[in-house]
Write a protein that binds this DNA or RNA. Structure first.
Length: 938
RNA sequence: GCUCGGAUGGUGGAAUUGGUAGACACGUUGGACUUAAAAUCCAAUGACCAUUGCGGUCGUGCGGGUUCAAGUCCCGCUCCGAGUACCA
C-alpha cells in the first residue's frame, strides 16, 4: 500500500484532539515562546486557500520551537463581532449570534483539517460576554484616566480633580480638547456638577464630543479614517459624507510621540513601520497668531515653514470653521455662504476627485502681519482641511505650490523672499538651499538658521510658539450598529455615567430589528429592555426610566478594533473571571514573540492595539510597552480569475485564441473549477453551471475553448476561490501545507496556481517510500555511509537556518533535494531517517507522526549542529585550481560543512600544488568563503 | 506628487549577502516498465554557434561606474506593485 494520506491524517487529527496534544501550561522549566496569528473574522464564505498561508507558517514555526525545547503558546480565536453578520441579520432576521456560531463551526472544521497545533482550550471570541466584559472594562479605565504630559503617561482622573481643586487648570500640562478654557481653583469650586463633568470629559482618554464624522448613509454608521478607501467605505464601497454627531472618541493623539518612538524598537518590516510613521505624520513647525483687523480674536495657524513668514500674502481658512461666519464682511456674506454650502454638499469623494480644480472666496476680512503690520486678506478655500492643524493656513505662495496655484488663480500678489531664485513658473519648495531676502531680521539666513531665529522671536514677542503637529487624529469609537460590544455607559442629565467594573458584562440586549430606529437612533434604540437601574445594578425595561434611579443606556456600540486591540493577552489566561489576565500568566508569557498577519492592518489594528498596550502599560496592568517585537506580514494569495468572451448581444462565446477585436466582446468571469491547468474550459460543465450558458454557442480554434486569466483578489463573487478542503481531499493536508510554503517567499503576494502541487505531492510519496516499501516498514539499524550523513547534516543546517529566517519556500526545496539524493543512494538507515523526520515534521506533521509511531521520536538532533563532518579538502579536478593573479591566489574547496577556518587553511597548505605557487612565501591574508572560493594574498 | 518595495529561463522561484547565475519544482521533449492506462523511474531543457568530438560566445529591465570578481555595491534612467494623498 502506498502513501494513504487520508487514513494517516484522519488518525492523527483525532489523536491530537483526544489527547489535547497541544495544550500548554502557564508554567514550565522550558523557556517560553508565544506565536500569534491575527485571528480571523468568521465570514459565511468559509476559508479559501489564501487564509491559511499565515497559519501554516506560524504553525511550522511553533512546531519547530517545540522541537527546540520551548514551551510554546500558539492559540487561535475569532474576531466575531462585525458588519457582515449584522447585514445578514437585517436581510434574514437571523440573530447574528446564530450565524456567527455557524460560521465559527465551519471555520473550526476547516482549520482542524489542516492539522494546526493550536491550543484550543484557550480559544477566545470577541463576541463572547466573558471576553467583551474585559473590553468594556478597558473602556472604563480609559474613561477614568487622562494623559499627563509632565509624567508622560496616563494618570487617574481623580488626580486631575485634586489638582483643579487646589490650583485650577493653568498648571496642568495634560492632553485635552482644544476648546478648554483656563479656570482657577475658585472657579472650579463654583462650577455646577454638569459643568465639572463637561470639563473632565475634555481630558478623559475616551470622551464624548460633538465631532465631524465620516457618515456612511448606506451602512447607517460612522466610519473611521482607515475604514474609508478613496472616499468610499471599505465595506461595500458606499459614499461617505461629513456629518456632526455626538460620538465617543479615543484620545490616541496623546500617545502619538510614543507610538512613533516605539517603532524604532520593533522588528517589523520597514514598509510597515513607514506606513505607521506616515499615518502618525509628525511635523515640526510653529503656531503663529494673526490678529484679525477690527476683532478681538486672533487666527492661529500651524506652519512647518515659519521661516517664510515674510512671504505671507494671504490667509486661507477651511470653509467649515465657525470663525469664518464671524469674521466675514457683510458685503461678502452671500458669496461666502454659498461657497460654504457648496462644499458641505460635496461628499469627501467628490472633494478628493477634484484636487486640480482650485476654488475659494475672499471673506472681506483682514489680519495684521505680526512683524510687518501689513494688512493680509483672509480667504477661504477647500484645499485647507478643517481637521488638520488649526484649519487655517498662512499662505506663502513663493514657497508652497498650493498657495502659489491659489494666488495665481485669484490674482493675489506673490512676494518673492528667496534670493537668486526665479518663481515665475512655480513655487520654490527646496528647503536645503535657501537664502532669505525681503525678510527683515531673517535676511540672508538659511532655512535652519531662520527657523531657530523666527521661533525665538515669535515666542519672545508672544506672536507664536514652536510646535509639533501630528496628522494622527483621535479615533472615533462609536458605531451605530447592533453587533458590537455595548458601551458601558448610561446618561444622567445628558451626561455620560460609567457603570462599575463589577456590573460588567453589560450584555447586548435582544432587538426586534437590526436596523436603525425610524428616528435614526442606532439599532440598540429598538431594544425595549435597555435602561440602567442604579439601585439594583441591573438592566431593566425602558418604561421604568425615571431619570432618578433608572436611566437610559448608551445606544452606540464599539468598533471592530476594540476587541482585537487586546485579545492576545486573553489567550494567556482565557478562563479568568477575576481579571483580563492574571499577574502570574502575564508575567510568565509577557509578550508575543512572533506575530503573523497581513499588512492591511498597518494603520488600523496594529496601531490601535499599540495604543491600548501603552495605556495598559502605564496603568501597570501589562509588563511591556510593545506587545509584538517581531512581526511578519504574509503576502496575500491571489486568485486567478478565468474569463470567457461573449459577442455583444448574442449567445456566442469566442475562444481567447481567436480574439481579434476585443471591443465587440464582453468579458465574463466563469468558475475557475471549470478550467484546467492549460486554461481549457469544460464546456459541458459550463452549460450546467448557470442557466444563461445552457444554449450557448462556442467559436473554437482547435477543439477546445481557451479562457483568459487575470490575477485578482480571491473572492466568491469573482468565481476564483479555491477551497482548501478540496485540496486536502485530493492531496492531503501535508501536501497543501508544504505547497503553500513552496509557492514563494512568505511575505510576497502571489497568485494561487494548483499546477505545481503534484511536485510536492510526489515528494511526500517518495519520502514515504524511504520508510515503507512493498507493504512493510524498511528502516534498518545499519550504520549509514559518510556521504549519507553529509546529506543529512547539510539539510539540517540549511533548513534550520531557513526556518529561523522564515524562508520556508527554500526549506521545502532542501527537503526535496535531500530525499532525491537519499532515494538515489537507496538509503534507509534509521540514523539518517529519524532526524530527517523531526526536521520535516513542522511542515508535514501527519506523515511524520505516523513514522514516529513506528520508530520513535528523537529531537536531540536539532540541538546538535552538524557535528559529524568537519574537514576540508581541495577539489582535485577543479578547473579554477589554483589561479594566480596580482599576488592573490584563488582556490576552490570542497566540503560545505566545514566552517572551521583552521581546517580549511591546513587543507590548502598541505597540498603540494599550493607550495608551488607560494614559493616559500607566507600567506598574508586569507579570505575564506566555505564551500566556495578562498583568496590567499601572499 | 511623495514614501516604500520589486524586475533573474516557457512558468513559480533559488543563489550561503560580492565568489561556478538559473538550485528545487512545474511545464515541454525523448526513453524505460506495461496489452493499455495510471503510478514510478531515467535523460534533455537560458539563448545562440558548433554539434565527427571534446567546446565557444552572449546572458539577471536599460545606460554608466567600482572590483581580480557584480543578479548582489555606487550613479543615472525605464517599467511594475503597494501605501498615502490638497497634512500647510
Amino acid at each position: 500500500m502506498g502513501y494513504d494520506f487520508k487514513k494517516i491524517e484522519n488518525k492523527w487529527q483525532r489523536y491530537w484532539a483526544k489527547n489535547q496534544t497541544f495544550r500548554v501550561e502557564n508554567q514550565s522549566e522550558k523557556p517560553k515562546f508565544y506565536v500569534l496569528d491575527m485571528f480571523p473574522y468568521p465570514s459565511g464564505a468559509g476559508l479559501h486557500v489564501g487564509h491559511p498561508l499565515g497559519y501554516i507558517a506560524s504553525d511550522i514555526y511553533a512546531r519547530f520551537k517545540r522541537h527546540k525545547g520551548f514551551n510554546v503558546l500558539h492559540p487561535q480565536g475569532y474576531d466575531s463581532f462585525g458588519l457582515p453578520a449584522e447585514q445578514y441579520a437585517i436581510q434574514t432576521g437571523q440573530h447574528p449570534a446564530k450565524t456567527t456560531q455557524e460560521n465559527i463551526s465551519r471555520y473550526r472544521q476547516q482549520l482542524d483539517l489542516m492539522g494546526f497545533s493550536f491550543d484550543w482550550s484557550r480559544e477566545v471570541r470577541t463576541s463572547d460576554p466573558n471576553f467583551y466584559r474585559w473590553t468594556q472594562s478597558i473602556f472604563l479605565l480609559l474613561f477614568d484616566h487622562y494623559y499627563c504630559n509632565d509624567a508622560n503617561k496616563a494618570l487617574p482622573i481623580q488626580s486631575l480633580v485634586d489638582c483643579f481643586e487646589r490650583k485650577g487648570n493653568s498648571c496642568v500640562n495634560a492632553v485635552c480638547s482644544p476648546s478648554v478654557d483656563t479656570f482657577t481653583a475658585k472657579e472650579w469650586e463654583m462650577f455646577d456638577q454638569i459643568k465639572k463633568q463637561e470639563i473632565l470629559l475634555d481630558y478623559r482618554l475616551t470622551y464624548l464630543s460633538e465631532a465631524e464624522v465620516n457618515w456612511c448613509a448606506d451602512l447607517g454608521t460612522v466610519l473611521a479614517n482607515d475604514e474609508i478607501i478613496n472616499g468610499v467605505s471599505e465595506r461595500g464601497g458606499y459614499p461617505v459624507t461629513k456629518k456632526k454627531m455626538k460620538q465617543w472618541s479615543m484620545r490616541i493623539g496623546a500617545y502619538a510621540e510614543r507610538l512613533l518612538k516605539g517603532l524604532d524598537t520593533l522588528d517589523w518590516t520597514d514598509s510597515l513601520k513607514e506606513m505607521q510613521r506616515n499615518w502618525i505624520g509628525k511635523s515640526v513647525g510653529a503656531k503663529v497668531f494673526f490678529q484679525i483687523e477690527g476683532h478681538d480674536q486672533k487666527i492661529e495657524v500651524f506652519t512647518t515653514r515659519p521661516d517664510t513668514i515674510f512671504g505671507v500674502t494671504f490667509m486661507t481658512l477651511a470653509p467649515e470653521l465657525d470663525l469664518v461666519k464671524q469674521i466675514t464682511h457683510p458685503d461678502q456674506k452671500q458669496i461666502v455662504d454659498t461657497y460654504i454650502d457648496q462644499t458641505q454638499k460635496r461628499t469627501q469623494r467628490e472633494r478628493m476627485a477634484d484636487v486640480k480644480n482650485i476654488s475659494g472666496v475672499f471673506t472681506g476680512a483682514y489680519v495684521i502681519h505680526p512683524f510687518s503690520q501689513e494688512r493680509i486678506p483672509i480667504w477661504i478655500g477647500d484645499y485647507v482641511l478643517a481637521d488638520y492643524g488649526t484649519g487655517a493656513v498662512m499662505a506663502v505662495p513663493c514657497g508652497d505650490q498650493r498657495d502659489y496655484d491659489f494666488a495665481k488663480y485669484f490674482d493675489i500678489p506673490i512676494k518673492n523672499i528667496f534670493k537668486g531664485v526665479s518663481i515665475a513658473e512655480e513655487a520654490f519648495t527646496d528647503k536645503s538651499n535657501t537664502v532669505l531676502t525681503h525678510s527683515d531680521f531673517l535676511n540672508d539666513l538659511s532655512y535652519q538658521n531662520a527657523m531657530v531665529k523666527v521661533i525665538e522671536s515669535l515666542e519672545e514677542k508672544g506672536f507664536g510658539k514652536g510646535t509639533i503637529n501630528y496628522r494622527l487624529r483621535d479615533a472615533i469609537f462609536s458605531r451605530q450598529r447592533y453587533w458590537g460590544e455595548p458601551i458601558p455607559m448610561y446618561y444622567k442629565d445628558g451626561m455620560p455615567q460609567p457603570l462599575d467594573n463589577t456590573d460588567l458584562p453589560l450584555e447586548l440586549p435582544e432587538v426586534e430589528k437590526y436596523l436603525p430606529t425610524p428616528e435614526g437612533a442606532p439599532p440598540l434604540g429598538n431594544a425595549t429592555k435597555w435602561a440602567w437601574d442604579t439601585r439594583s445594578k441591573k438592566v431593566v425595561a425602558n418604561e421604568r426610566i425615571d431619570h432618578q434611579t433608572v436611566f437610559p443606556l448608551e445606544l452606540n456600540t464599539m468598533p471592530g478594533w476594540a476587541g482585537s486591540s487586546w485579545y492576545f493577552y486573553r489567550y494567556m489566561d482565557a478562563q479568568n473571571s477575576e481579571a483580563l489576565v492574571s499577574k502570574e500568566a502575564v508575567s510568565y508569557w509577557k509578550e508575543v514573540d512572533l506575530y503573523l498577519g497581513g499588512s492591511e492592518h498597518a494603520t488600523g489594528h496594529l496601531l490601535y492595539s499599540r495604543f491600548w498596550q501603552k495605556f495598559l502599560f502605564d496603568l501597570g496592568i501589562l509588563p511591556v510597552e510593545e506587545y509584538a517585537k517581531k512581526l511578519i506580514n504574509q503576502g496575500m494569495i491571489l486568485g486567478s480569475s478565468a474569463f470567457i468572451y461573449r459577442k455583444s448581444g448574442s449567445q456566442t462565446y469566442v475562444s481567447s485564441d481567436l480574439i481579434s477585436d476585443p471591443h465587440t466582446l464582453e468579458p465574463i468571469r466563469v468558475d475557475v473549477s471549470l478550467v484546467n491547468a492549460s486554461d481549457e474550459l469544460d464546456l459541458e460543465g459550463l452549460k450546467k453551471w448557470q442557466p444563461q450558458f445552457k444554449n450557448a454557442q462556442f467559436e473554437l480554434k482547435e477543439i477546445v475553448y481557451k479562457v483568459n486569466r487575470e490575477v485578482e483578489k480571491m473572492s466568491k463573487s469573482k468565481y476564483n476561490v479555491v477551497n482548501p478542503d478540496e485540496i486536502c481531499e485530493q492531496y492531503g493536508a501535508d501536501t497543501l501545507r508544504m505547497y503553500e510554503m513552496f509557492l514563494g517567499p512568505l511575505e510576497q503576494a502571489k497568485p494561487w496556481n494548483t499546477a505545481g502541487i503534484s511536485g510536492v505531492y510526489s515528494f511526500l510519496k517518495k519520502y514515504w517510500r524511504l520508510y515503507y516499501q512493498n507493504d512493510q516498514w524498511v528502516v534498518t539499524e545499519k550504520a549509514p555511509s559518510k556521504k549519507a550523513l553529509k546529506i543529512l547534516h547539510e539539510t539540517i543546517k540549511k533548513v534550520t537556518y531557513d526556518i529561523e529566517n522564515f524562508s520556508f519556500n527554500t526549506c521545502v526545496s532542501s527537503f526535496m533535494i535531500c530525499v532525491n539524493e537519499l532515494t538515489a543512494m537507496d538509503c534507509n538507515q534509521k540514523e539518517i531517517l529519524m532526524p530527517l523526520t523531526v526536521l520535516l515534521s513542522p511542515f508535514a506533521p501527519h506523515i511524520t507522526e505516523e513514522i514516529w509511531e513506528q520508530f520513535g521520536y528523537d529531537q536531540s538532533i536539532l540541538n546538535e549542529p552538524y557535528p559529524l563532518v568537519n574537514e576540508a579538502y581541495l577539489v582535485e579536478d577543479s578547473k579554477n585550481y589554483p589561479v594566480s593573479f596580482n599576488g592573490k591566489m584563488r582556490f576552490t574547496l570542497s566540503l560545505s560543512l566545514s566552517l572551521d577556518h583552521q581546517a580549511i587553511q591546513s587543507a590548502v597548505l598541505s597540498d603540494s600544488r599550493t607550495a608551488e605557487y607560494l614559493q616559500g612565501k607566507e600567506p598574508k591574508k586569507w579570505i575564506i568563503v566555505p564551500n566556495k572560493i578562498i583568496n590567499i594574498v601572499f
